[in-house]
Every structure is written in structure tokens, then in C-alpha cells.
């Protein structure tokens, strides 16, 4: 970790988790590296991001690398919402890179990110899945703390399966003239999705109020939802997931 410099350029943190299957078939965490605001704790339910500092703040540059070996399982959760805040160091960034080996399973479902007033946050996720790998990837975004107008938030998710693109999906909320119109958010203040990838998914599309279950061209289903609150968003996503899981 590099602590904030005197000029206010923010944290630079690089955390990592490695999960591998041992000879008995059980998954062991063979690597668990916390760094600065990315504090990780191993629990029976999975690895928790416990958030050792508020933020990310403008200027923070955070990265988390997840490696799931062949046949291993890893669940990642967080203890609380991440609140993207402005700072003197310009924009903030959180990049997650994940590689899941053959027949491995990654379940990444942290609490929501809240885009606070004045933030300028970029979230990047790059996930590569090997043959037979299973993914559950949830991203939830709440626009603003109570009653405030959110700052800028851009999130991109890139997922490949055996090096073929499965989903490349960017949600740019950096210009209210665009995302404030009827085509992008439709007035919602909470938006999110769950990507399920792997074999055996139910591939019937569904559309309801503020919820769509979208079977992808490749082996995956994207559940996407729009809501007024974080709780409503979670309910919709959970329902959509139950439909996609078959």
C-alpha cells in the first residue's frame, strides 16, 4: 500500500485472493493479501472485504486480483456498502481482475456501491472463465446518499469464456443529459445486475417492472434491474436470479 501522499493523490492498493483445490477436493485460500483500504477477512461464508478506510476517495487507485484454481470455489462478500466520495486527487478507481479455472466457481456479491455527490469513480471488472467455470457476479449501484445528486460513476464489466467474449457491458453515468433521459435509467436511482455464467442456466427471457432476465448469446444470463432504493433493487435482482437459475 502507498498511503496518501502530501499532495493528496490518494491510496494505491493492490489486494489479492487465491483459492485452490487441494488433494482432498477442498478449497484452500493459498493467498490472501490485504492492502490499505482493501482489508480482507476469511470467514466460513467466504472472503469479506471489510473496508479499512472510508471511500474510495478521489485519487484512490484500488485493485483486487482474484484467482480461483481448477475445481476450487470462492465467495467474496463485503461487510458494508462502498461509498465513492470526492477527493483532492481527481477520480477514484476500483479494478477487479478475476481468473476462474476449469470447473471452478466464483461468487462475487458485495454490498452496493453508493455514488456520493461530487464523486468521480470508475469501476472496472475483467473476468476470464475457463471451460466449465461457474460465475455469479453482482454489482449494485445507488445514485447518491439520501436525497443528494450523485457524482460521476462509470462501470465496465468484461467477461470472457475460454477467451471468447461473453459480456462487455459498460454503464456510464457521467452526463445527466444522457443518463437522465428516458433511454438509460428511466428515472431510477438504483441500478444493478447479476451475471450468471456457466452450464445449466435457465434461458427463458423475462421482463417485468424494472427487471429483465436476459439470456446471453454465450453461456450466461444477465439479470438487470432498475429501482428507487437499494432494498428494492436487491429484491428485484434476487427474483430475477431465481428465474435464471431455473
Amino acid at each position: 500500500m502507498s498511503p496518501p501522499a502530501a499532495g493528496g493523490t490518494g491510496y494505491r492498493a493492490r489486494a489479492a485472493v487465491t483459492a485452490e483445490r487441494d488433494a482432498t477436493g477442498r478449497t484452500r485460500l493459498t493467498g490472501l493479501r490485504s492492502d490499505g483500504p482493501l482489508a480482507l477477512r476469511e470467514t466460513p461464508e467466504g472472503v469479506y472485504l471489510v473496508g479499512a478506510a472510508a471511500g474510495p476517495l478521489g485519487g484512490d487507485d484500488l485493485a483486487l486480483d482474484l484467482t480461483v484454481g481448477a475445481g476450487a470455489r470462492l465467495a467474496v462478500r463485503s461487510a458494508a456498502a462502498m461509498i465513492a466520495l470526492p477527493g483532492r486527487g481527481g477520480g477514484s478507481r476500483f479494478a477487479v481482475r478475476a481468473a476462474v479455472g476449469a470447473d471452478g466457481r466464483l461468487d462475487f456479491a458485495p454490498e452496493p456501491t453508493v455514488a456520493a455527490a461530487g464523486c468521480d469513480h470508475r469501476s472496472v471488472a475483467e473476468i476470464s472463465l475457463a471451460r466449465g467455470a461457474v460465475l455469479r457476479w453482482r454489482e449494485e449501484l445507488v445514485l447518491g446518499r439520501h436525497g443528494e445528486v450523485a457524482g460521476r460513476h462509470v462501470a465496465r464489466l468484461d467477461v470472457t469464456v475460454e477467451d471468447r467474449p461473453l459480456l462487455r457491458h459498460e454503464l456510464r453515468l457521467d452526463d445527466p443529459a444522457i443518463h437522465g433521459g428516458r433511454a438509460v435509467l428511466g428515472g431510477a436511482t438504483a441500478v444493478g445486475g447479476v451475471l450468471l455464467a456457466g452450464p445449466g442456466l435457465h434461458t427463458e427471457p423475462f421482463a417485468g417492472a424494472g427487471l429483465a432476465v436476459l439470456p446471453l448469446a454465450g453461456p450466461g444470463v444477465l439479470v438487470t434491474a432498475l429501482a428507487a432504493t437499494a432494498d428494492e433493487l436487491r429484491r428485484k435482482l434476487s427474483y430475477g436470479e431465481s428465474l435464471a437459475s431455473g
Binding site: 438509460v184 441500478v191 445486475g193 423475462f206 421482463a207 438487470t224
Partner: peptide, 17 residues
């Protein structure tokens, strides 16, 4: 791989509706 991927959740919903 780096080509733009900007999405519009409402348009996705409208298309399915």
C-alpha cells in the same frame, strides 16, 4: 475487446417488453 460497450438498461427492458 476495448471497443465501447455503453449500455442502456431501460432500452434493454423496452426491447424485451
Amino acid at each position: 475487446a476495448e471497443l465501447p460497450a455503453a449500455s442502456a438498461p431501460m432500452l434493454d427492458l423496452f426491447a424485451e417488453f
